[in-house]
Design a protein around this nucleic acid. Structure first.
Lengths: 155, 155
DNA sequence: CTGTTGGTTCAAAATTTACAGAACTAAAAT
DNA sequence: ATTTTAGTTCTGTAAATTTTGAACCAACAG
């Protein structure tokens, strides 16, 4: 049914490993990978299960987690009980911001650290303060970066 | 020797968990946490081991990994065989760039995906191309962001 | 009302990870 | 020369994670 060549299989693994790196489990990462490379971007539960060679429960868990994370949505067709799952790719901005926020939220912890650090290590404290400060700045600049990027494209 | 109050212990755990999130193991994250909160910023192998209550092997592995990742350095004193480990905090810019690069490197995979995707799904492909494009743009803009942040500070 | 489809949920098995403990080593101290 | 220090490396294992398979369920179809 979903016949994938070796290149695409390898890409699925690569995409899978990347997403493992950001905290998803292997099977979940592969579901994302499959949907990225599949020529038909809407796949059923069973197509996903079968193409990836995973169990129903693994497929169910992965799909539901991804739905929860807003990475996936599904469409239905009248007279067809199956759901057709696809990536919510148009939401990439929000997804990316959420990912970057994981890092920038560390800033709050650093500021807490500063409140409890001795004042006897000014150079050290200054570095922590700088890092925290830049993380906040980075966070604040993402919308502007997105805007500037859009502009640079239309130019 | 290294007497830490509950607040600092909690901060160590928080810093540890954050670093677990970016791929380090718990004990390794806690070593970073300890060095962030410790009033004495240079600690010996045994002080780290004892304060965190971890085994020599766990301490050895964590410290060597962090040295490898350039997150730690050590100093020595004549007539003292111990090494004194400390955070390479002044390197936070490089560390952060490396962390952001983990995300932006995904762009290359996306471009590979595009090479192998059918042309029959233009909207879908466009989203992938946009995401890849913005990741590249983000990567390219980090140095400028650092510069602008420095300027905004001195103002 | 009975069977089938499209899943979900649960318990157990398999795999992976993280760590401890003990044995070891190189350099320095006695 | 032998003991101590400051770690390293290896092996075993406990715990956590991930996955499977089987039982289950709700909705619809015949």
């Amino acid at each position: 049914m979903n016949n994938l060549n070796d290149t695409k299989r390898a890409l699925i693994e690569k995409i899978g490993i990347f997403h493992e790196g950001i905290g998803l489990q292997p099977a979940t990462g592969r579901v994302l990978g499959l949907l990225y490379v599949s020529d038909r971007p809407e796949l059923t539960f069973d197509e996903i299960r079968e193409t990836l060679g995973i169990s129903k429960s693994a497929a169910s868990n992965a799909i539901n987690l991804l739905l929860h994370l807003n990475r996936l949505e599904y469409i239905t067709y009248a007279g067809d009980r199956k759901r057709y799952f696809r990536l919510k790719l148009s939401r990439w901005r929000e997804t990316l911001i959420e990912e970057i926020d994981k890092v920038t939220e560390f800033s709050a912890t650093l500021q807490e650290v500063l409140l409890h650090r001795t004042k006897d290590t000014p150079g050290y404290n200054k570095s922590i303060d700088e890092l925290a400060g830049f993380l906040n700045y980075l966070h604040s600049q993402i919308p502007a970066l997105l805007q500037k990027w859009e502009q640079s494209k239309s130019a």
